[in-house]
Design a protein around this nucleic acid. Sequence first.
RNA 1: GUGGAUGUAGCUCAACUGGCAGAGCGCUUGAUUGUGGUUCAAGUGGUUGGGGGUUCAAGUCCCCUCAUCCACCCCA
Length: 435
Amino acid sequence: MAAQRRFQTVKGMHDLGGWKASAFVFVEEKAREVFSLYGYDEVRTPIVEETELFVRGVGEGSEIVGKQMYTFDDKKGRSLTLRPEGTAPVARAYLQNNWASGPQPVKVFYMGPYFRYERPQEGRYRQFHQIGAELIGDPGPYSDVELLVMLVRFLQELGFEDLEVGLNSVGDVECRKRYSQRLREYLAPYRDELGADSRRRLETNPLRILDTKAPRERELLENAPRLFDDLGGRAHDHFQEVREQLVQADVAHRIEDKLVRGLDYYTRTVFEITSTALGAQNAILGGGRYDGLIAELGGPSVPGIGFAIGQDRLVDLVLKIPGARQRLNAEAHRRRPVCVIPIGGSYRRHGMELAQELRAAGIPAICEFDSLRPLKARLKQAARHDCRWVVLFGEEEEKNREVVLRDFQDRSQETIPRDGFAAAVAAKIRPDEQP
RNA sequence: GUGGAUGUAGCUCAACUGGCAGAGCGCUUGAUUGUGGUUCAAGUGGUUGGGGGUUCAAGUCCCCUCAUCCACCCCA
């Protein structure tokens, strides 16, 4: 016989429980609440898509497509990929379901797992989770601003106070081409001082050199031509209007002229929020405008803008906010169950019935069925389940047609009539919610 | 893909230059034949991540492998 091996999650993927799970649900509920206030509807797209969707949508030159995708062939030899990001699938859904024929602009949000094959570290996992939103069909700039206002509102509702949006414009396709050439010319004399990655990007995608972390490269870039100066008239006006309206809307932001993003589809407005409390993987969220994406996927020329929030990182931050655990705790507290303990083996069926009556009255209830164990051990279990109230039922209670309701908090207990006991328990444990 | 650190009981960690694998917490039972949290007593705990090598003797030294964490890279 082969020795039993111990199974565990695959690298970079984790079970979520306890505080983490509560916080995950908390931010998800808050996202639904806030985003729907702004007219967004939830969509769920499949976790698996055709590989080609991401190659075309995200861009062949991007890191994601280049080396981070979970790609496999199905039984018919079709190349499929576990989604590495959310915008391309939504763009695909827009075209496939002809959302263009519905009310415009289209506003959707979504949340769920995403997959990228990278070496895991703090805040970076192979299965991670994003909450995102897309606004398709309006060229802005007011849509850009409204989207950011919603985002900031969401973060404030979660309890964040001092987060600042980093903002930039990467321009339209033509400005980018023009600027790329100028940057290439500027950096050419320093070619030998660039790292291998940046040298390669000099050919493939000079913009990406801007957000380098190498100290020497940053030095060189200080005197480099600025992307902002190469913005074409319309992209320039768009950016100005966005900035102005953000000020009007009281959205704290700062211009980061070296902010470029890793996905090829971005145009004009790009933004991100980072936090120093997160370690090396400090981006909480990122997004931007993608006016060429729908067309790139074979559709009409329709503009769009969206963002993706790193839910895992966001949750880490939420749990660091003073008082956050108490808030989550209060929620859990409201749901802590009543524990029913039938005393004696022949009363287990009664225990089940009592628990059912409590649940029918809207009270969370568990039943401690293991009647062979000593009562004290079973009470201990109830305490470990974080129960405050215990309902006891045995021979004596059956004879008197009553139940015993014990309050762990002050160690008091009372007997109440068996008939209609659930209503009495409800009145006792939730006096403020009674009609 | 590259580099560094770490793997000993369910958890947190001990074990001097190789010499009988330990403690705290937890868990179970009892002190209380139907009453939790405190206390006391007893009990339960392990292929030292896996494989190979050196040695009279390996948790400890050497090689390989796997896993986790952190960082580079990249991004959410």
